[in-house]
Amino acid sequence: MLDDFLLRAALAGVGIALAAGPLGSFVVWRRMAYFGDATAHAAILGVALALIFSAPVTLGTLLVALAMAAAVSWLSTKGHAMDATLGVLSHSALALGIVAISFVPGVRVDLSAFLFGDILAVTRPDLAVIWGGAGFVVALLGWRWSRLLTATLSRELAAASGIDADREGLVLTLALAVVVAVALKVVGALLIAAMLIIPAAAARGLVRTPEGMAFGAAAIGAAAALGGLWASYSFDTPAGPSIVTVAAGLFLLVALFGRRH
């Protein structure tokens, strides 16, 4: 039953979910949802640049996502009105990226694969990139966990313990850019933020500690990836949006029946 391409798709989805769970928890705690959106949308611009310079797409998205994330964090320290600024940056990057892709000479590019993901076309090298990136993010967050948590609670508490909140913010920025770059193939630029936020928000209703939320979000994300793939295979629906739909369904279940501590 498990065709080879389905197995690869499942592995890709689970890999992304494992990294997106803990990272998404921070995105929720720090109210960075729009920040995640802006970074993900910038990935399309990265795709365009990579195609124009015939560089690897993952490298292009990583660099542009990193630049966008850095620009946004820099602006936030300058005291700009973040809501409008993020909206402008996020949608400009998306529009500019799509326009730029249309200028790429030669082959017609399948734009929807970048917007909504193409998880069923994941190759073995793709899998290596996805698990490499996800593994890097999980290791990075695990290493800095206590510092990241303390910095999330309060800059002053962090400073008193010798933790530089700005540096920890950069760690999250880097993690976000890596997840965006490797998740592009799986759920697409438009739905990466959904994979960060929905599983974490769903897990919130079930847990009592930050660590519980990180693990819960990873588990819910993995379940959504597998359930979404199954639904996509059974009902012939687009895979990326199916995964996010299942995640949303799980969120709704927890919201309705979960016990909020």
Partner: peptide, 27 residues
């Protein structure tokens, strides 16, 4: 070794945190 007691600490409702866990942050 510096200990700090802030005037007020806002913990976002989205962040689950028991007293025990909080006491062990960051060490």
């Amino acid at each position: 070794r510096l200990g700090y007691v802030p005037q007020k600490l806002h913990i976002d409702a989205s962040l689950p945190m028991t007293v025990t866990r909080f006491l062990s942050l960051p060490t």
